[in-house]
Amino acid sequence: MTERIIIAGSGGQGVMLLGKVLAESAMREARHVTWLPSYGAEVRGGTANCMVVISDEEIGSPFVQYADSMIVLNDESLRRFGGRLKSRGLLVLNSSLAQSAPPAKIKNLESRPFSAIALELGTVKVANIVALGCFVAAGGIVGKGSVEGVIKGKAGEVSTDIITLNLKALSKGFGLAGGSRAKGGR
C-alpha cells in the first residue's frame, strides 16, 4: 500500500512541521517514507506545502501529482490543490479558514474548524496538530500512538508544556473525525 499525501496551508501554519511529524510517525512504524517540501522563493509568499509518501515498499517519486489524501489548512490552498485529490481520496479541511466549497467530487471529507479549536486549547499555533489528529483518525494511515511517540520524542527540544499541549491537540483532533474510512488508525 502506498499513500500519497499533500499538506498545504499558509506560511506560519506549521504545514512543514505537520508533514515532518507525520513522516516521522511512519518511520517509527518501520515503513518507507519520503517528505518533500515546496522550497525557494515561492514559500516566502502565501502558501506553503509539503508532500508525504508512506509505503510498505521502496518509494519512487517523493513528488505527489495526485493525492490519495490531503490536509488543507486555508482557502487559497484548497483552490490550488483541491483538484489534485483522487476521486476516492480523503480531504481533511480547516473550515475555520477555508470557506470555499470543496470540489463536489470529494466524498470523503472531514471539514472541521481546526483553528477555532486550537484557539480554545490556548493557541492557534496547534491547529496543525489538531488537523493531524483528525487525519490520523480519518485516514488510518499511521497509528495515533506513533504520532504521540514522535511528539513525546521532542522532549529534549521543547518544554513539557508544549508537548502536553500538542498531545492534547492531537487527541482533540482525533476525536473530531466522523465519517472516516478507518477510524482508530492502524
Binding site: K20, A23, M27, V33, T34, W35, L36, Y39, P62, F63
Partner: peptide, 10 residues
C-alpha cells in the same frame, strides 16, 4: 537534483 536535496527520508 533539487528533489534529492530537499526531500527527507529515514
Amino acid at each position: 537534483d533539487g528533489m534529492l536535496g530537499q526531500m527527507m527520508e529515514p
